[in-house]
Nucleic acid binder design. Structure first.
Length: 745
DNA sequence: CTACTGATTTTTTTT
DNA sequence: AAATCAGTAG
């Protein structure tokens, strides 16, 4: 009991022990706000005696939720945390909606559409309204609708407020889009929030239920909540008013996604009796790092300036480095990492490289590969966004909900089965005419006499063959557990053959191993009741974020975007690409608000560092395939020279151009080859019949499961299936081709 | 309908 | 530099 308050400073204690009612914690970076949240929950449970069942904590990512749970278990033991609800807005809304499904006037469970699905649906909308995709880009319209939804603006109100001709088009799309969503039994990402707010607004009994259920509400990263999330919280907290929010206006970096800092700035207006607690002491960084961060942020406009301080000591000076180009920049970073590791003070996992755009990771990746430095990369093309994965998932979603029009459209001709563009649009048109989902239209077609059919016999047969394939697969759902089901679907559909045909042997095998990995992931759902496995899997797959996959145990350098780095910390941080056009990004330069957000992004990045911070920019950079000379970021000019280690040129000094060229071409060709070799050898391992390469007793390491001992190994479907006993996880069966088992000697 | 080829466009950030 | 698109031959 004492331990809950023991390790906290007075301000933190005050927050943790706050009496009932609204509480606003304004917390600077590294001030232990996550700690305060965790300890607050522990305090509520252990000291106040609150049933964890009555506590709801909202985090920004699933990873943060998981970590909070873990720390809580360390603090008060696993038993008392059992009934606690911790999750992201989206996952919590998804759960509330599934429970309240009957109020939504839907009979079936819904599927969740991600950005890609949204865009496909929008294409269908545009086509059905005979609008030109060139003139009205689906993505732009989707964005428009998405921001409207974030502000809880429905089609009707949208039309009322926005009256330009273009907006009239958007309104029509919005309406049709919603119709099609409903027909597909689908909700898009934004709908999860919107529908939940509506559910609570229009169903007082449901709200009452949640008022009884969630007596204590805690929200992290409150500065990044959007209007819908704000309303949701307001509704949930209305009766009890035990709302505990934590945030930092200086770390608001999601305005482009609808986040509204006013939510945190006006908290005291919303709740005049709110206790406000300021956490200014920083426990993370050295004073030198904080000074630089402060200098960056003070250059901007902000409401209440915080005064960050630390007693961590002065630490090393932050350094600023100019590279010749992005490859040189990457080289400098990797050299420094190698130097730090060799010095023995740091491990690879202590180092993080942060950048503004995902595209910047490529040069870094190449440099890391050439030097043989292990790394994990967050972002880029996410696993669940890969085409082959989305295709398989589309089949699975279709089995869970055959009315899902986007998924149906996605797999209708994948693999190619003679149903082309023409047939597809005719099918769309026809089902719209009937006013039924496509799946139902196909069923009608099956019941029709051949000559009544709007399709030529050959086309009709292709469509009916597809329908019976789907029906055949639907029958499998009840018969198998999830991994077996996925195996069966993939097999019946002929995914492997299709991938080989489409991408050639090497890439096809790579993609195939992704599919096998998907099946592997599904193993985690095997203990659920069979009928819940598929739905739960699909839901969680839709809501995972990329940071969620970050493994802090793994000894590897982390490469991550500044946005995703929020909430993380590393002893050593490299911020790269600090140039005009990149940070601030060129797309943010003409808007004052956006520009300020870029500044905060740099601030967030700098404050991730505990001990060492390196700032990098390049003299020139290749973008869109051609070379541009760059200027150092304007934000750097706000940092007093005295705070920075004088800019260091490359160790050998900037060598004559010719040397630079030889050096770089060496590097890049080396990378090319190394990378290729790497890829193809991985592919070969999974191609066709292989040999057994793991022997019982062999010590191995897996990224997620840790170290283990090989129990047995056998050939299955031309792949090596290794059974490994892991110390923490028990026995797992893994496929050698993609599990990336490392041998430990 | 599919597969290939050359032209054109594209990246900001993500739950 | 890579991905997507449009047009064409089979």
């Amino acid at each position: 009991m004492v331990s809950i308050l023991d390790a906290l400073n007075p301000a933190q204690q005050q927050a943790v022990q706050a009496i009932e009612g609204p509480v606003l914690v304004l917390a600077g970076p590294g001030s232990g706000k996550t700690r305060v949240l965790t300890h607050r929950i522990a305090y509520l449970i252990n000291v106040i005696g609150v049933d964890p069942f009555h506590i709801l904590a909202v985090t920004f990512t699933n990873k943060a939720a998981r970590e909070m749970r873990e720390r809580l278990e360390q603090l008060i033991g696993p038993g008392p945390t059992a009934g606690l609800t911790v999750g992201t807005f989206h996952s919590i809304c998804s759960r509330i909606l599934r429970r309240g499904i009957v109020h939504l006037g839907r009979e079936r469970d819904f599927v969740i559409y991600d950005a890609d699905d949204q865009e496909r649906l929008m294409r269908r909308v545009l086509r059905s309204l005979s609008l030109d995709e060139k003139q009205y880009p689906p993505r732009a319209i989707r964005n428009r609708i998405s921001s409207a939804k974030n502000e809880l603006v429905g089609p009707h109100e949208f039309a009322r407020v926005n009256r330009s001709y273009y907006d009239e088009i958007v309104t029509r799309c919005y309406e049709r889009y919603q119709e099609l969503l409903r027909e597909s039994n689908a909700l898009d990402f934004d709908d999860l929030l919107v529908e939940t707010v509506h559910l609570l607004e229009y169903h007082p009994d449901v709200t009452a239920h949640y008022h009884d259920r969630f007596v204590y509400l805690l929200v992290d990263e409150y500065q990044d909540t959007n209007r819908a999330q704000y309303e949701l919280i307001k509704l949930l907290a209305a009766r009890r008013r035990n709302l505990f929010v934590v945030g930092d206006e200086d770390q608001s970096i999601y305005a482009w996604r609808g986040a509204d800092v006013r939510n945190i700035l006006q908290f005291e207006d919303d709740y005049p009796d709110a206790q406000v607690i300021l956490l200014e002491q920083n426990y993370r960084s050295t004073q030198e790092i904080l000074d630089v961060a402060q200098a960056v942020i003070s250059g901007g406009e902000r409401k209440h300036a915080k005064n960050l301080w630390t007693d961590n000591g002065k630490g090393r000076q932050v350094s600023l480095h100019e590279g010749y180009d992005q490859n040189d920049e990457a080289q400098q970073v990797v050299d420094e990492i190698a130097r730090l590791i060799a010095g023995g003070d740091y491990r690879l996992s202590d180092c993080a490289i942060m950048y503004r755009t995902n595209a910047q990771s490529r040069a870094l990746e190449e440099a890391l590969i050439t030097r043989g430095v292990r790394y994990q990369i967050v972002g880029g093309t996410r696993f669940y966004e890969r085409k082959e994965i989305k295709d398989v998932l589309a089949y699975l979603r279709l089995l869970a909900n055959p009315y899902d029009g986007v998924s149906l459209g996605r797999v209708l001709n994948v693999p190619a089965r003679g149903i082309g563009e023409r047939t597809e649009s005719e099918l769309n048109r026809w089902s719209a005419e009937l006013g039924v989902p496509i799946y139902q239209a196909l069923q009608e077609l099956a019941n029709m006499e051949g000559r009544q059919s709007p399709f030529a016999t050959r086309t009709r047969n292709a469509l009916l063959a597809f329908l019976s394939l789907i029906d055949e697969l639907i029958d499998l759902v009840k018969q198998h557990d999830l991994p077996t089901l996925i195996g069966a679907v993939v097999d019946r559909v002929g995914v492997y053959e299709a991938l080989l045909r489409e991408y050639g042997a090497d890439d096809g095998e790579d993609r195939w191993s992704n599919v096998l990995e998907l099946r592997n992931v599904s193993n985690e759902y095997i203990n659920l009741p069979r009928e819940a496995q598929l739905a739960t899997f699909l839901e969680e797959v839709a809501l995972v974020a990329d940071v969620d996959s970050l493994d802090p145990q793994k000894d590897a350098v982390t490469c991550i975007t500044l946005h995703q780095a929020k909430g993380l910390e590393f002893p050593v941080v490299f911020l790269v690409g600090l140039e005009e056009g990149l940070l601030p990004h060129s797309r943010s330069m003409d808007d004052r608000g956006a520009l300020e957000e870029e500044r905060r992004l740099l601030y967030v990045g700098a404050t991730r560092a505990k001990e060492r911070l390196y700032l990098h920019y390049a003299f020139r950079r290749i973008t869109y395939g051609h070379v541009n000379t760059t200027a150092p970021s304007r934000f750097l000019s706000h940092i007093p020279k005295s705070l920075l280690h004088p800019p260091i040129k490359r160790q050998q000094s900037i060598t004559p151009q010719s040397t630079m060229f030889t050096q770089r071409s060496d590097v890049s060709s080396g990378v090319g080859k190394g990378y290729q070799k790497n890829r193809s050898s991985r592919s070969r391992a999974s191609a066709g019949p292989t040999e057994i390469t793991f022997a019982p007793g062999q010590q191995v390491r897996h990224a997620r499961f840790g170290e283990g001992i090989v129990v047995s190994s056998k050939l299955v479907d031309g792949d090596e299936e290794v059974t490994v006993h892991f110390a923490d996880q028990g026995e797992k069966r893994l496929l050698a081709s993609f599990a990336r088992l490392e041998r430990v000697d």
